[in-house]
Amino acid sequence: MATADDFKLIRDIHSTGGRRQVFGSREQKPFEDLVDLGWLKRSSVDSRATHYQITERGTSAAL
């Protein structure tokens, strides 16, 4: 179930172009929650960072 923080984060991601790069596993937790909701997808993972991209469902949630 989505929380107020989830909606705040997806709106922030949407307003800044729909993509986010995250460093460190602790910082990934809120983004992984949005992946579980179907609002974000992991577009790539490298040794230092994970890249996320907003989905259509995420765009709808952000509006």
Results as ranks from 00 to 15, higher is better:
Y52W: 03
E56G: 07
Q21L: 15
D36Q: 14
S47A: 13
T55R: 01
L63H: 10
F23C: 12
L9Y: 03
R19Q: 12
T50G: 05
L40R: 01
D5Y: 08
Q28E: 05
F31I: 03
G17H: 05
M1R: 12
R11F: 10
A2Y: 06
S47W: 09
D5H: 09
F7C: 07
D33F: 12
G58F: 00
A49F: 12
G18Y: 02
Q21C: 15
A4Y: 10
A62H: 02
S47L: 11
E27L: 11
V22F: 04
A4P: 13
A4S: 10
L63I: 10
V35K: 02
L63W: 05
T55L: 03
I54E: 02
H51L: 15
S47Y: 09
S47R: 08
T3F: 05
G58M: 00
D46A: 07
H51Q: 11
R26S: 14
K8M: 10
D36L: 15
L40G: 00
I13T: 01
S15H: 11
S43V: 15
F31D: 00
L34M: 03
R26K: 14
L34E: 00
D46E: 09
I54G: 00
K8L: 10
E56F: 08
H51D: 11
R48H: 14
G24E: 08
S60N: 12
L40F: 00
D5K: 12
L40D: 00
L34W: 01
H14P: 00
S25A: 12
D33W: 12
T16K: 11
W39P: 01
K29S: 07
F31T: 02
G17P: 02
D12Q: 11
H14K: 05
V45N: 08
R26M: 15
R20Q: 05
E27Y: 11
S43R: 09
S25M: 09
R57Q: 14
T59N: 07
R48I: 14
G17N: 07
A62D: 02
R11L: 12
Q53F: 10
S43K: 10
L34D: 00
K8N: 09
G58W: 01
G18N: 03
L63Y: 06
Q28Y: 06
A4E: 13
L40K: 00
K41E: 14
L9K: 03
F31Y: 15
S43G: 10
R26L: 14
L63G: 05
D12L: 12
E32G: 05
S60H: 13
H51C: 15
R26N: 14
T59V: 15
I54F: 01
I13G: 00
K8A: 13
Q21V: 15
T3C: 07
F23G: 07
R48E: 15
S43I: 15
P30L: 06
R19C: 15
L9C: 05
D33Y: 12
G58N: 00
L37R: 06
I10R: 01
D36K: 15
M1G: 12
R42H: 06
A61V: 09
L63R: 07
A49G: 15
I54L: 05
K29I: 07
E56S: 10
R20Y: 07
Q53E: 14
R42M: 08
F23R: 10
V22Q: 03
P30A: 09
I13Q: 01
R11Y: 10
L63T: 08
G24I: 07
T3W: 04
G17W: 04
T16C: 10
R48D: 14
A62F: 03
V22I: 08
D46L: 06
G24S: 08
M1Y: 13
S47F: 10
L40M: 04
R48W: 12
S43E: 15
L37S: 02
I13R: 00
R42Q: 06
T55H: 01
T50Y: 09
D5S: 11
K29Y: 05
H14M: 12
K29E: 08
T50C: 07
T16L: 07
S15C: 13
S47G: 14
Q53G: 04
L40E: 00
V35Q: 02
F23S: 13
D6I: 06
Q21G: 07
V22P: 03
I13Y: 01
T3A: 05
G24T: 07
D12I: 09
S44N: 10
R26H: 15
R42A: 08
I54S: 02
T3S: 10
H14Q: 09
Q53T: 12
V45I: 11
K8P: 02
M1K: 13
H14C: 10
S44M: 13
S44W: 15
V45D: 07
F7K: 04
